[in-house]
Amino acid sequence: MTRGLVFNSSPLCSQDSSTKEALKAHWLMQALPDFGIVQLTGSRADNIQAEFERALGDSVLYWHSSELFSCFAELLADTLSISTTDHAYLQHCLRKWAENDGVLWLVVDGEALSHELLMQIKEYAPLSKKGQFAIRILLRISDQKLHSRAFKPLLSVIHERVAWPELSHLHTSLSSSGQLHQPSVLSRYRATALWFCGVTVIAVGILFATQNKPVSVQRIATEMVLDAGSVELLEEQKPMAILEPISKNEVLKVSEFIKQWSSAWQAQSIDKYFSMYAQGYSAYSYMLPDEWRLWRQERLKKPTWISIEIGPIDLVRVSKAEYRASFWQLYRSDSYQDDTLKVLSLREEGGALKIIDETNQEVRLLSKE
């Protein structure tokens, strides 16, 4: 899942505010068919939304109150002239509508709607014959509200985020060159990490004390230094046993696998590409594996050409037969370009590596110039 698409990278820094907002609105129009729901937040969200609505005209619907529609099903039934809000029948009608190239652009005010209403927007995600989402939702909601525990199921279906950097934020800083820097994941979770490390050091110290064995607090604290990707999941993970270091042969094996995976993607080789994923894999919880493959196949075939470059790979062992590989991926095609921090979870299955999870940690839109 990708959360963190912040438009403050160098390709856009030289543009004035109105130009940046127009670029973001244009990107939203390109991204929503492929992602279904995109989060919009930040101090310039109103301007970006205005550009978005200006570009699409009267085709944009706005949902900000239960007084307009008491539930999402009612909104869809009323807008698309469907005679019932029965869940099963509505899903059937939406599938037929989407297959006939129906499209609905929708701006949802997540700050104004209740938790119950917001959770409903993930229930209806019909796909067109081209594998694109027919209902395209621009969700106006703050990070603070969206990342609360109650919204975890909704967060799992939002894979992209457009935000304007908050210059007034305490943790935002400017370098001597004037370039804007966002806080790292580690700095944002420093308190949690320090608490976790402190409690662990104390617990281990007590354990060793009861066994009359000396303990080096410095050594324990050093061993508990966490990488940025781990800190974000502290509440959900249990401490793992100490694992063996990764051998050179394993590094070469994983690197070759990722090279073959990116080559199959670049060559638009459908069968080879899908063979590198675990059986029954789907990137989205609301898509069956066959539905995900159909959607993904259309996205693979759509560009006239694809070029992919893989940067240095950071490899971590998760278990004896499972790895996590992180790397920057430069993706270019005839219609779209970005630079993505990709994370692949890989596992040995039948003597061969397979992808069991694929996440975009950060996406940087690249200009077409």
Score class of each variant (00 low, 15 high):
residue 2 T to F: 00
residue 4 G to L: 00
residue 7 F to Y: 13
residue 12 L to A: 02
residue 19 T to S: 14
residue 20 K to W: 01
residue 28 L to T: 04
residue 30 Q to E: 11
residue 31 A to Q: 15
residue 36 G to E: 09
residue 42 G to Y: 04
residue 54 R to V: 01
residue 55 A to R: 12
residue 55 A to M: 12
residue 73 A to V: 07
residue 80 L to Y: 07
residue 81 S to H: 14
residue 84 T to P: 02
residue 84 T to I: 03
residue 85 T to P: 02
residue 85 T to H: 01
residue 88 A to C: 08
residue 90 L to W: 02
residue 91 Q to N: 13
residue 99 E to V: 02
residue 101 D to A: 13
residue 102 G to E: 08
residue 103 V to L: 10
residue 108 V to H: 00
residue 111 E to V: 01
residue 111 E to S: 10
residue 120 Q to T: 09
residue 125 A to F: 11
residue 126 P to Y: 11
residue 126 P to N: 11
residue 129 K to L: 15
residue 131 G to F: 04
residue 135 I to Y: 12
residue 163 A to R: 07
residue 174 L to I: 13
residue 177 S to V: 01
residue 177 S to Q: 09
residue 182 Q to R: 13
residue 186 L to F: 06
residue 188 R to H: 05
residue 188 R to F: 03
residue 192 T to K: 13
residue 196 F to T: 08
residue 199 V to R: 15
residue 205 G to T: 07
residue 210 T to H: 12
residue 211 Q to F: 07
residue 211 Q to Y: 04
residue 212 N to H: 09
residue 217 V to Y: 14
residue 217 V to D: 05
residue 221 A to D: 06
residue 231 V to Y: 04
residue 247 S to A: 09
residue 257 F to S: 10
residue 259 K to C: 05
residue 263 S to R: 14
residue 268 Q to L: 03
residue 271 D to Q: 06
residue 271 D to I: 04
residue 271 D to C: 00
residue 274 F to P: 03
residue 276 M to T: 00
residue 277 Y to P: 01
residue 284 Y to S: 07
residue 290 D to L: 08
residue 294 L to K: 09
residue 296 R to E: 12
residue 297 Q to D: 02
residue 297 Q to F: 00
residue 298 E to L: 06
residue 311 G to K: 06
residue 313 I to S: 02
residue 317 R to W: 05
residue 331 Y to V: 03
residue 333 S to I: 10
residue 336 Y to A: 03
residue 337 Q to G: 03
residue 349 E to A: 06
residue 356 I to Q: 03
residue 359 T to D: 09
residue 362 E to F: 03
residue 364 R to Q: 10
